[in-house]
Simulated assay, not measured.
Amino acid sequence: MNGQRIGYVRVSTFDQNAERQLQEVQVDRIFTDKASGKDRNRPQLDVLLGYVRDGDTVVVHSMDRLARNLDDLRKIVHDLTKRGVQVEFIKEHLTFIGDDSAMANLMLSVMGAFAEFERALIRERQREGIALAKNRGAYQGRKRSLRQDQVLELRKRAKAGEAKASLAREYGISRETVYQYLREES
Rank of each mutant, 00 (worst) to 15 (best):
D56P: 02
R20L: 13
E88N: 13
K38N: 09
D71H: 13
R10S: 06
D15T: 13
E19V: 07
Q16C: 07
D99A: 15
Y51A: 05
R68G: 01
V25S: 06
N69G: 07
L108A: 00
V47I: 11
L94K: 00
L66C: 04
G50T: 04
S62H: 12
F31K: 07
I97E: 11
D33C: 03
N17P: 05
R42P: 10
G84W: 02
V52K: 07
H93S: 14
E24H: 15
R42L: 11
R10Y: 08
D28Q: 06
Q21S: 11
A102V: 14
T32Y: 00
R74F: 13
R74Q: 15
V59D: 01
R74T: 15
I90M: 12
K38T: 13
I76H: 07
D79T: 13
K82H: 08
L48P: 03
L73C: 03
S36W: 00
R42Y: 10
L48F: 06
D39E: 03
L48E: 02
G84Y: 05
R40T: 15
A35M: 08
G50V: 05
A18S: 14
L106E: 10
G37E: 04
L94G: 00
D15P: 05
Q16N: 04
A102M: 13
D56E: 03
V47E: 10
E88M: 11
V77Y: 00
Q23E: 15
T32F: 00
N41K: 15
T81S: 01
N17I: 07
Q21F: 12
H93D: 14
N69L: 08
H93T: 10
R74M: 13
T57N: 07
L48I: 02
L80M: 12
Q21R: 09
K91W: 06
N69H: 12
D100E: 15
G50P: 03
A102T: 14
R29D: 04
A67Q: 05
T32M: 01
D15C: 07
A35K: 10
D64A: 10
L106G: 04
E92H: 02
M107K: 13
Q23A: 15
L22E: 06
A67V: 00
D71Q: 12
D71I: 12
Q86V: 05
D64P: 09
R40N: 13
M103F: 14
V11Q: 05
Y51F: 13
S12P: 03
V87Q: 03
D15F: 08
T13S: 11
L73Y: 06
L22Q: 07
D64I: 09
V52M: 08
V87R: 01
A102L: 14
F96L: 11
N105G: 08
D28H: 10
M107W: 12
V77A: 01
V87M: 02
K38A: 15
V58H: 05
